[in-house]
């Protein structure tokens, strides 16, 4: 995440091939991968003859023409379960990004308008302290209190992750304030509300949204990672982390139980990573 911030500041390598410079390949490949996953996540569970939580065959069957990804230790179809998890994993991660994104951006903007140095300093050190604690460590510690579950993960992300967005929004807001167009819209006599909503907020949020996209990858890994440690979704649920941790004791003989959910997770991560990289490139190409 710090990498993203520092790379935006100075990116001297704009000498790649033309297509790459504007990040078109990244945006296209990333969006198509993501779209394919979302479509499959909707269609596969709907059209398949198997239910994700139903025992449909003998346990630990290897991949075959009936069960493309084999069956798990209880005899459930891994293929359906992998795709049934798409909206659960991506949905939880989406909430876990959007809530902190909105809260953090607003907090950052408010902080940038405050005049009281003491209050700003106190809140800034608090933000720094939250950011100093590794997200996973803080999340695990809070799960000790809230109890495991996907709802807890969303609450935890809302409680902690806003600090990173607030830091970015605050830095960005200070830069935007210095820019010429802010002076221009003020001289044009626009109302304060209009200036803030139409000119200030979009310029600040473009930066936090860009970070949000790369944060999405980290949050997906956090959600599935916590579930993998049995601190997230509970076992009967079709969720990639849960499925991987269920497959772990059988990994020697029934590799398909662990590998396929893992590949789905990688697919989502790579799609978002390409998309984030492409958009970052395009932003650089324009400015």
């Amino acid at each position: 995440m710090t990498a993203v911030a520092s790379e935006t500041a100075a990116d001297p390598d704009s000498d790649g091939p033309g297509l790459y410079r504007e990040g078109r390949i990244g945006i296209w490949v990333g969006s198509l991968m993501l779209l394919a996953m979302l479509v499959a996540g909707a269609l596969v569970p709907a059209l398949s003859e198997f239910h994700p939580n139903e025992l449909v065959a003998r346990p630990l069957l290897p991949p075959s023409a009936t069960h493309y990804f084999g069956t798990d230790q209880l005899g459930r179809d891994v293929f359906v379960r992998v795709f049934a998890a798409v909206y659960r994993d991506l949905g939880v991660a989406f909430l876990g990004v959007v809530i902190p994104l909105v809260v953090g951006t607003l907090v950052g903007i408010v902080l940038s308008t405050l005049r009281n140095g003491f209050v700003v300093n106190a809140i800034n050190t608090l933000i720094e302290a939250i950011n100093a604690l590794p997200l996973l460590v803080l999340a695990i510690a809070l799960i000790a209190i809230l109890g495991p579950g996907l709802t807890s993960i969303v609450i935890i992300l809302a409680l902690t992750n806003w600090a990173r967005y607030a830091r970015i929004a605050q830095t960005r807001a200070a830069v935007v304030k210095q820019q010429g167009f802010m002076e221009a819209v003020r001289l044009l006599g626009y109302s304060r509300t209009r200036i803030y909503l139409r000119h200030f907020l979009p310029n600040v949020s473009s930066e936090t949204i860009a970070y949000g996209l790369s944060d999405f990858i980290l949050v997906i890994m956090l959600v599935s990672g916590l579930s993998f440690l049995s601190l997230g979704a509970a076992p009967p649920t079709a969720e990639w982390g849960v499925m991987m941790s269920e497959g772990r004791p059988f990994v020697r003989d029934a590799w398909w139980m662990t590998i396929f959910p893992g590949l789905a997770l990688c697919w989502a991560g790579v799609a978002l990573s390409f998309l984030a990289e492409g958009l970052h490139r395009r932003e650089q190409g324009i400015s």
Binding site: M221, G225, G262, V270, S273
Partner: peptide
């Protein structure tokens, strides 16, 4: 060669998108 940084970026993006616990499991197997 001008394609080296290009490939470098793509490959590092892919590595960053693979969760460490998946890599760990595969490495262990």
């Amino acid at each position: 060669h001008s394609s080296v940084p290009y490939i470098f970026r793509a490959v590092t993006s892919v590595f960053l998108a693979i969760p460490a616990f998946f890599t760990a499991l595969i490495a262990l197997i």
